[in-house]
């Protein structure tokens, strides 16, 4: 066991981990941050996406020890400081961009990473960026719409 320290959602945290402890395990089991989900074991579904030093990564495919000293943001850290939904979160609710909610944390984290890189993405760019986030409920239609809306663009991408 070794000690690992990092900043999670702005708060310094540390804990004892094994070499094989994944970041997602450290977050869920060690920190009780269960908003980050595990939906596969082949690093494809994206339910576990968090930001490490500002970049979207799959927290199931990075060891906790590799995040030593890093700034980690999870879905629990995405709301506004007053607790209200952030622009992206609000857009997901407004446009029904989630159903069962399981993939949603990863979707929101990927959407935030996309908009940080590309503030006005096209529909095609959004769909391409979500390559690593699988949703089984929504057919992606309203997720795409929510991200377009969050970027301040017209959401009339399809007939209602």
């Amino acid at each position: 066991m070794t000690k690992v320290s990092m900043t999670v959602n702005g708060k310094p945290v540390s804990g004892e981990v094994e070499g094989r402890t994944l970041l997602v395990q450290f977050l869920r089991e060690g920190q009780g941050l269960t908003g980050t989900h595990v939906g596969c074991d082949t690093s494809q579904c994206g339910a576990c996406v968090v930001h490490v030093d500002g970049k979207a990564v799959k927290s199931c495919t990075i060891f906790a020890a590799e995040a030593e000293g890093a700034e980690v943001t999870t879905i629990e850290g995405m709301a506004n400081p007053d607790g209200s939904l952030s622009t992206i979160q609000q857009a997901f609710q407004d446009h029904h961009g989630l159903q069962c909610g399981f993939c949603t944390p990863g979707m929101v984290m990927s959407a935030a990473a996309l908009l940080a890189e590309n503030p006005k993405p096209t529909e095609a760019e959004i769909r391409d960026y979500l390559e690593g986030n699988i949703c089984r409920c929504t057919g992606y239609h309203n997720i795409v719409k929510a991200i377009l809306a969050a970027s301040g663009q017209d959401v009339a991408v399809a007939a209602e």
Binding site: I75, E76, Q89, F92, Q93, P105
Partner: peptide, 12 residues
């Protein structure tokens, strides 16, 4: 439902 799912407060 959405607020809890969007803020990581769902309980699966």
């Amino acid at each position: 439902e959405d607020v809890r799912f969007l803020t990581g407060r769902g309980r699966y």
